[in-house]
């Protein structure tokens, strides 16, 4: 907290530094504590409520200490269309906590993450910031149990990613000429436009 207070002093006393100050608090303390809010308010010369507002508006700011092992579940649609919601239910059941919560001993936590576009790994989770995917449901259970057992370094063997069969030159035959006419076809067109 002292270190944070010291670093905070280096920020200009401007309203525009609010997010930077809150990020600083989260980096230094792991979460936004009531004390941190008071310090930021004093430094930026605004009311505590004016700090509390943004601190609770933005989803990235946490108001409880982080768990030792954090599983961030990707909520994105690309994950969802391949079973992402099941992954959530599995982790919730295995950890015994709901999404957004920690286990009572703060050893494990399951938080919601937003899609950052590593959708080729779907369905996936981040374990302490590291992408783990693509997960089958069986793997999800096994991963959750290993984390519960205290494995904090996870060397998760990635499945060799399947390489699409039509890799070369027959692309035109398979999918139709890239620049030719007649692309206004529907899904069946893929087969029809072969030549």
């Amino acid at each position: 907290m002292e270190r944070f207070a010291g670093l905070l002093q280096q920020l200009p006393r401007q309203q525009g530094e609010m997010l930077r100050a809150l990020h600083l608090a989260q980096e230094e303390l792991g979460w936004i504590s009531r004390d941190a809010i008071r310090l930021i308010a004093r430094h930026l010369r605004v009311s505590e409520a004016q700090v509390y507002g943004p601190a609770t508006f933005y989803a990235e700011f946490r108001h409880s200490p982080p768990p030792k092992t954090l599983v961030t579940w990707c909520s994105g649609p690309s994950c969802r269309v391949v079973g992402g919601d099941r992954v959530r239910r599995i982790f919730e059941a295995e950890f015994g906590c709901r999404l957004g919560e920690n286990t009572p001993d703060d050893e494990l936590g399951l938080w919601l993450g937003q899609c950052n576009g590593t959708c080729e790994q779907a369905p996936m989770v981040w374990v302490n910031g590291r992408v783990v995917g693509p997960l089958t449901m069986v793997e999800s259970v096994k991963l959750a149990r290993r984390l519960k057992a205290g494995d904090d370094v996870i060397e998760w063997p990635q499945r060799p990613i399947k390489i699409a069969p039509a890799t070369f030159v027959d692309a035109e035959a398979t999918y139709g000429s890239a620049h030719g006419p007649g692309h206004a076809h529907g899904q069946e067109g893929a087969e029809e436009s072969g030549r």
């Binding site: 401007q14 309203q15 525009g16 530094e17 609010m18 997010l19 930077r20 809150l22 990020h23 004016q50 507002g53 943004p54 508006f57 933005y58 989803a59 990235e60 700011f61 937003q114």
Partner: peptide, 26 residues
């Protein structure tokens, strides 16, 4: 650089401006 903090509605330009100003991104 202004680092966001996880708010979708800040992608709307007036929300984004509010967020740059350091208030809730409404």
């Amino acid at each position: 650089i202004t680092r966001g903090a996880g708010s979708y509605v800040c992608g709307e330009e007036t929300g984004l401006i509010a967020s740059v100003e350091g208030i809730r991104g409404m």
